[in-house]
């Protein structure tokens, strides 16, 4: 008797092994060329003259000031945008009012406006030639070419990230759980912290991480409002550009590597959190 070939079942949506490997291969090749290669190139460039040269280039006053400034801006802009994003998403999803569609469009505005234009708007509004800006300068408050302007520009550009992540999640969840909490005697404030926030925490985390990555990396709007004053208003991206233009390649790429590392750390954090809470996550998704 001839051998009986083992019968193999394949579900309707499953591709042949060949097609599967081909698709996976293409995906990896794409990732390698578009993501990994540039990332490795940045680190390689930074280390061309050895690790010591790279570290030394980061140790001077201007470089340290840029790193500090970027971290400060992120530390201000991201929490504020998280708070505004939550408020906006909450308002849009929990209430019915006229002009809702318009408000949602408005939230997307920073995505469609070029950051440079956004920066110019801030200069026009708060520059010393404007009414408001002139008055503020007279009171001793400098917005443009100073920290407040950079924070404003960063916040404008990164505003949609949190709200955009939250709105669909909050629409999907509706108001029922919050109403249940209220009927059980919880105050509005307690309901917010024990029901609303836990229900949106993953979307919130994701939005905050995206917002964070973009806030650290923002170039265009900040370039306009900061005035690029070395050691004062030059953020990391601005400093990288200036160093690169001056052919200080090691210094430029060292700082670029630090910026990339900061982004990678955020990603790692998100992945760790997801792994740690995987059970709970899947239990909730099936609900």
């Amino acid at each position: 008797m001839s051998d009986i070939a083992p019968i193999r079942f394949r579900s309707a949506t499953e591709e042949t092994p060949l097609a599967r490997w081909a698709l996976i291969g293409i995906a990896f090749a794409g990732l390698a060329v578009l993501v990994f290669a540039p990332l490795i190139a940045v680190f390689a460039e930074a280390l061309v003259q050895g690790a010591w040269a790279a570290v030394k280039s980061l140790g001077n006053r201007d470089a340290l000031s840029a790193i500090k400034l970027t971290l400060i801006i992120t530390a201000i802009a991201v929490p504020l945008n998280a708070a505004f994003g939550i408020a906006a998403a909450w308002f849009i999803t929990k209430f019915d009012f006229r002009g809702k569609a318009f408000l949602i469009t408005l939230i997307d505005l920073p995505f469609s406006v070029s950051p440079v234009v956004a920066g110019l708007c801030i200069v026009l509004m708060f520059g010393s030639n404007s009414l408001l800006g002139g008055w503020l300068v007279a009171q001793g408050y400098h917005i443009v070419f100073a920290l407040p302007g950079i924070v404003l520009a960063t916040m404008f550009v990164t505003f949609p990230f949190v709200a955009r992540e939250l709105i669909p999640v909050m629409i999907e969840q509706g108001r029922a759980e919050e109403e249940a909490a209220l009927t059980l005697g919880a105050s509005g404030w307690r309901t917010f912290w024990t029901v609303t926030i836990p229900n949106i925490r993953w979307a919130l985390l994701y939005g905050v991480l995206l917002c964070n990555a973009r806030a650290m990396g923002e170039f265009g709007a900040v370039a306009v409002v900061s005035g690029k004053i070395r050691g004062q208003t030059a953020t990391m991206p601005i400093t990288i550009e200036m160093l690169y233009n001056e052919y200080l390649s090691v210094a430029a790429f060292s700082m670029a590597a630090v910026l990339a590392l900061l982004a990678l750390v955020t990603l790692l954090l998100k992945t760790l959190l997801e792994i740690r809470h995987a059970d709970q996550l899947s239990a909730q998704r099936r609900h």
């Binding site: 029922a176 759980e177 009927t183 909730q284």
Partner: peptide, 14 residues
């Protein structure tokens, strides 16, 4: 202080 049972139960999923 009304015990309210919602149509879709509205249990706290987390």
């Amino acid at each position: 202080r009304a015990g309210f049972v919602f149509q879709s139960y509205a249990l706290f999923r987390h």
